[in-house]
Amino acid sequence: MNDLALNWITRELTAIHADKNARFLWCTDENALNTLPTALHEEQLLVLTNRWDVAEQAKARGFTTEFNDFDCSEIADNSLDKIFYRVSKEKPVVHHLFNQAWRCLKPGGKLLLAGYKNEGTKTYIEKIAKLFGSGKNIVKNGPVYSSELTKYTEYNAAELLDDSDYRQPRLIASDSGLQLHSKPGLFGWNKVDAGSALLIEQLKQLSPQPNPLNTCVDLGCGYGYLAIAAASLDICSSINHWIMTDNNAAALQLARQNLQFNQLNGDIIAADAGKGINAKADLLLCNPPFHQGFGIDGDLTDKFLLNAKHLLAPQGIALFVVNQFIPLERKAAPLFKEINTLADNGSFKVISLAN
């Protein structure tokens, strides 16, 4: 997908002309995947991303890069000359970064912002213009809105946009019997996902395996529900090595906390759909995403399946849950010898895979 909003951001980045003391910040998420330019103003520009794969690509292209949950706390007040941002999918993330832009930009500093019309970009521009005391300066180019907004007002914490307390984890799904914490910005953050719950129900009913289950990989773990729920089941009682992996910084942070809250020992690994992890899973659990940013990306399912093939032990079993319309069986056929649909409730289906 050719992201016209991101194209506008990168053109503005390449057009920078500034003295050597100027400091710039580029906040980006999965929308920048595979479209990063080579390093620009490498001593002056910091790329801040919540995505492991984007961070690795940015480093490979020579950018100074930080991978975290859009944590700007180490950036001093009134210290940045420009911030570049292609709007994100989740409103709490957008509002959080707008609030940080207001704090971090120098008086007279600029936020360069772009996004598509159907992403609420015009409304976002109006909100940040009000905070900044700036003109809206909205430019419409086909489906894309962009703006260069100048900070004129002093930062005032009492007037911040509502970011749903973005930085603060909170207890969710208290009726599940598990200690689960999550936060805005994560998939299904305030509940147990129905597809994941269906997978756990099928795992409960799975026949005992002929070989002992020692290692479990939660592939694309999110805040860690699948592994933590599985750990309480009889079929998983022999598992002594839990591995939870994700691409998202917030997911990794919450998965680590949830392991601790539930007194479960395990490894938390940042990876792109499990790529580069060398462990062999006797049991692999996965509720793969099918969105990349604002778009639907069928290749994501292929990537998760390919890495699951690599991670699965010779006698291991993988359980995937996907939306009913995802042709997982067809996609898995070239990779796995055994493919069985365990459940299909019309919304989600659970499929077991074996080498």
Rank of each mutant, 00 (worst) to 15 (best):
N211G: 07
G266N: 07
A5F: 03
W52E: 02
A129Y: 11
I243C: 05
T245Q: 02
L305G: 11
V139G: 03
Q253C: 06
F84K: 03
G293I: 03
A250H: 04
K106W: 09
K89H: 10
K117M: 13
Y155K: 10
N31R: 13
L259D: 08
H241L: 00
L36M: 10
L36W: 05
L342G: 00
V192C: 06
F304R: 11
N355K: 13
G222T: 03
I128R: 02
G295S: 14
L198S: 01
L97I: 15
N340R: 10
E329Y: 06
A32W: 04
L6C: 02
K127M: 11
L161Q: 11
I228K: 01
L335A: 09
A251L: 06
S196R: 09
E56N: 12
Y85E: 09
N34A: 12
Q57E: 15
G133K: 12
Q324M: 00
K280T: 02
Q257I: 04
L40G: 08
P314K: 04
T215D: 00
T49L: 05
K140Y: 01
E148M: 13
V93W: 00
F348C: 08
S232C: 08
L284W: 05
L203P: 00
L259N: 09
A318L: 00
E119Y: 12
H95R: 13
Y116G: 12
F24E: 02
Q315C: 03
G293S: 08
V350G: 07
L6F: 12
D234Q: 12
Q253I: 01
P289I: 01
I235K: 03
L178G: 09
R256E: 14
H310P: 00
Q44M: 06
K89C: 07
L353T: 08
P288M: 12
Q205D: 08
N141E: 14
N211E: 10
